[in-house]
Amino acid sequence: MSKTIQYFLAPQSPWTYLGHERFVAIARAAGARVDVKPFDVGRVFAASGGLPLAKRAPQRQAYRLVELARWSQHLNIPLNAQPAFFPVPADPSAKLIIAARTALGGDAALDLASAVMRAQWADDKNISDDAVLAQIANSCGFDGAMLVKSAQTAGVQAEYDSNTNDALAANVFGAPWYVVDGEGYWGQDRLDFVERALQKP
């Protein structure tokens, strides 16, 4: 019987971006089902003692840039650690991914998430702009205008809120966060452990 992975993602997170393609490949190789759950990481930070980047100590901010460069080089994934549009409101892109999952399924949502994060972290796009989001969705072969409109509905907002409540209930405190068999794994650098968990009977 295939396993289900709860994937709590924040599209404005460079760490989610760096791990996304590897995570999707691991999940598909294991035949696992991915429950794509974009969530409000700001609400989770507020509840769990996390600080937004601008409020972190200078040495923490500086080391973050060093680590992002290291991981980008190690994984051979293009990344601009200081993009033109950052910090950026993440609600529009997160809700777009939810709209894609609702209308088109989990695989479409994963593909769109990949394109959105690449636009943010490699292509210097503003992922809070509806026109940009529509273009990104179109580039994936989806109806961008339809998804942007759907993303603004009360139903999608309710699911976004529900995902965030689920994250709080699962003791999530950062992104990306993966849950396998009830056990949480924080960060793209824990993907080896996620892969091992998927191999357990």
Rank of each mutant, 00 (worst) to 15 (best):
W121E: 12
T164S: 13
D123A: 05
K149H: 08
L147N: 02
L133D: 04
N171L: 10
C140I: 05
R118A: 15
A131M: 05
D143T: 00
Y160Q: 02
R118V: 05
W121N: 14
L147R: 06
S139R: 10
V116M: 07
F142K: 06
V156L: 11
Q135F: 00
D123N: 07
S150P: 00
S150Y: 04
G141Y: 02
M146R: 15
I136K: 02
I127N: 06
V132D: 00
M117R: 03
Q120S: 13
N165Y: 01
Q152V: 03
Q152P: 01
A122I: 01
T164G: 11
I127Y: 01
A134P: 03
G155F: 06
V156I: 15
D124H: 12
L168P: 02
V148H: 09
D161F: 04
D124R: 11
N165D: 13
V116H: 07
A167P: 11
E159H: 09
N126K: 11
D123Q: 10
R118F: 04
Q152W: 01
W121G: 14
K125I: 00
S150I: 02
F142C: 13
T153N: 09
A113N: 11
A115K: 13
M146T: 12
Q120N: 13
S114G: 14
N138T: 03
G141F: 04
F142V: 08
A154T: 06
A145N: 10
A170I: 04
V132A: 13
N138E: 12
V132W: 00
A113Y: 08
A119W: 00
A151E: 06
T153D: 11
Y160A: 08
D130H: 10
A169K: 15
K125T: 01
V116N: 09
A169D: 07
K149C: 05
K149S: 14
G141W: 00
D166C: 12
K149F: 03
N171P: 01
E159W: 00
